[in-house]
Design a protein around this nucleic acid. Sequence first.
DNA 1: GTCTATACGACGATAGAC
DNA 2: GTCTATCGTCGTATAGAC
Lengths: 188, 188
Amino acid sequence: MPPRLVSDTQLVDRLTDLFRSEGFEASSLNEIAKATGLQKSSLYHRFPGGKEQMAADVATAVTERFATEILAPLVGDGPLEERIREVGRNLDAFYEGGERRCLLDVLSVGHPGRAASSALADAGNGWVAVFATVARDAGADETTALARAQDAVAGIEGALVLARVTGDKAAFARAIDRLPDLLLGRAS
Amino acid sequence: MPPRLVSDTQLVDRLTDLFRSEGFEASSLNEIAKATGLQKSSLYHRFPGGKEQMAADVATAVTERFATEILAPLVGDGPLEERIREVGRNLDAFYEGGERRCLLDVLSVGHPGRAASSALADAGNGWVAVFATVARDAGADETTALARAQDAVAGIEGALVLARVTGDKAAFARAIDRLPDLLLGRAS
DNA sequence: GTCTATACGACGATAGAC
DNA sequence: GTCTATCGTCGTATAGAC
């Protein structure tokens, strides 16, 4: 193992922050170098595929991070509703109450390459699938479970768009709040 | 009035299509020239402010078009529910069943300039305001009317994001379908 | 594995003829 | 009002020393 000034995880984390706040096209290699602390040529050593590979790796990493850090409580023990509320708190922290953008949205605008696009699709489908499992555990049949899961994710994503455009984060807070009712099929 | 090869409305329409499908940063002046049929220098004659002004004008135009072509039925006559359904059909046509992106989303990723960003905020707030008026007409107080309107818009925007990322347009269809129930406060 | 230096094309924007 | 031609800058990516 040769020594590395910046670890792989650090590298991907910093790339994630940059891509999320600036988008793919607007993140130039100069800014990437500044944000990561590595020179451009060093970046090509770590990511031989260039910017597109960076985006793909970021998209892949966020999928894992989402599963392990955010959605993990859903596959645990305890009352289902409480576990959903915990996921809501995780999401609220992850998106900083609606202030931060979602990579699924930001990265899919523009042309981050096939690998990244496919990784984003996996991330989106994975998120929906986890929510759908919860809804099915709550008694919903396959079709309605999928619908509830998609609606829940869409509600969050849309609220983040609204927050970015208008600055109003209220819809995001509501999207998080109604998560239990929506997934458990107790829509008010 | 001097003769123009491409009318102002044609110009803005073509710019709208390009920005919506490619995003702001990815729409280069060469592609803009190709899409509009004008040379780059001619474009600077029509838009002295360059790309940023193009984005701002597009954002402003889409606000008007949304009001006159999409949301118009809401300020008309007839049963409220039927008018909402008509708006739903308009939205479904406008977004081609979830296939097309939303300018509010796409253009707000990246850096289209202050004028465009402010115009986008106006567009988003205007859309919400029209929906809120409907909800208030249906008997909701100011606060819940605003909430329902934001949730309705967010549901549509999020479904469009989901459709773009995963390719599944089902959530968009549902977001349109539940528009009447949501705005009229008959959430299922 | 990281660096300095550089290649070279595409970018947004402008000059000036017609 | 539109064009051809061009400017300077910044983009991604590479070469080669250490």
